[in-house]
Design a protein around this nucleic acid. Structure first.
Length: 367
DNA sequence: AATGCGGGGTA
DNA sequence: TACCCAGCATT
């Protein structure tokens, strides 16, 4: 038997667009999602929520959202804070450039924009850290401007509805999806519509095991009709992870420790760390200690810590040591000396945070 | 157009 | 383990 395919007429096409739009809004009204940032139209608060939620699950970001607004309740408060303080609020959340850019933008808005968040899409999208998605989100949620959001949820929903087989991580795919998103958008209530389609993607049209059985759009969904929902969205191959080996020396002098802010173009920019020697492949502490000019006595060696980033696999070892050579060697390299008690007031990568946590635990249990 | 940038939940 | 998450900047 021959598989029947037929091209939809322009009229049918327009009709299904209308039905999908209505279906999304109705589903949203019947299945409201109680998210804290939905309760406000304050641009600053919406901005904070949207930056936090970039590539970050709602469950993971919610606590950060409350704490960030508590610590920095306004553009002014954020602008007047130290970078270290801002990074500390972001510690553990990842993609730390987000925090850096927010801080930069807050300072810019104070000095060049009278501390007010801009109210047009053109101005908003020019701000650091704000791209097409975030600009559309803020524009529609805070100012009711008709810009469609195109995030991971929306791309998944649309690619399934219309069987878009262009890779969603290609510019061609993105522009195709954006066209669809613009067609679908409800221009009278863009904010509501954008919320609806994202919620729908998160709850019904999920990445794995979508709930097609009671999906209100199943009759309009090409992928569902063809029983190919699992082959959308189409993505390119992901790259292999690079392995890196970090040897960290927690160098002490008395009750002080030397730490340094990471400043190179690399992971964990603007977070703090100990003296680092990066090994090439497998290496031992002996090789590493031999390669430094520092006079130190190692007191303890830690277990091995590993952390998987999206693009790198980090293996880290820590050694605690006392310093005998002149401190100047370290100060010249940008290190600062911090009292042990104040150590945790700085922001660290997760792998260092874990090490410090384990160390504190060991001290407690052995005493 | 490709790549780098975190951390965690889930199947 | 691999994939994905309310993406963006840089080259």
């Amino acid at each position: 038997m021959k598989v029947q395919t037929r091209v939809k007429s322009a009229i049918e096409e327009r009709q299904s667009i209308v039905m999908i739009r209505r279906g999304l809004l109705e589903w949203s009204a019947q299945n409201p999602r109680n998210l804290p940032w939905k309760k406000t139209e304050e641009p600053y608060e919406i901005w904070v929520s949207e930056i936090i939620l970039q590539q970050t699950r709602v469950d993971q970001g919610t606590e950060y959202y409350f704490r960030f607004l508590e610590t920095f309740p306004s553009i002014k408060a954020l602008a007047e804070a130290d970078l270290d303080q801002v990074m500390k609020a972001w510690e553990g959340l990842g993609y730390y450039r987000r925090a850096f850019h927010m801080h930069e933008t807050a300072k810019y808005l104070m000095s060049e924009h009278e501390g007010k968040f801009p109210q047009t899409h053109d101005e908003i999208i020019r701000l650091k850290g704000i791209g097409p998605y975030t600009a559309a989100a803020i524009s529609s949620f805070a100012f009711h401007l008709p810009y469609p959001v195109l995030d991971g949820n929306v791309m998944r929903v649309i690619s399934r509805l219309f069987c878009v087989d262009l890779p969603v991580d290609s510019s061609e795919g993105r522009s195709h999806l954006m066209q669809r998103a613009e067609q679908l958008l409800d221009h009278d209530k863009p904010g509501q519509f954008n919320q609806a389609i994202m919620d729908f993607g998160a709850m019904i049209c999920r990445p794995r095991s979508p709930v097609c059985k009671n999906c209100p759009l199943s009759t309009y969904c090409s992928a569902n009709q063809n029983d190919t929902v699992n082959s959308f969205p189409v993505k390119r191959k992901s790259k292999q992870k690079k392995e890196r080996y970090f040897f960290y020396l927690k160098i002490n002098k008395g009750n002080q420790t030397y730490i340094r802010r990471r400043s190179k173009a690399d992971i964990w920019q603007n977070l703090y760390e100990f003296y680092l020697v990066e090994g090439r492949g497998k290496q031992s502490w002996k090789d590493v200690l031999h390669s430094t000019n520092l006079k130190i006595d190692v007191v303890t060696y830690s277990d091995i810590y590993t952390q998987a980033l999206s693009h790198q696999k980090i293996t880290a070892r820590f050694a605690e040591a006392t310093l005998h050579s002149a401190e100047e060697l370290l100060f010249e390299q940008g290190f600062i000396k911090v009292n042990q008690k104040k150590l945790r007031t700085f922001a660290y990568p997760k792998i260092i945070d874990c090490y410090l946590g384990d160390k504190a635990l060991n001290l407690n249990s052995s005493s």
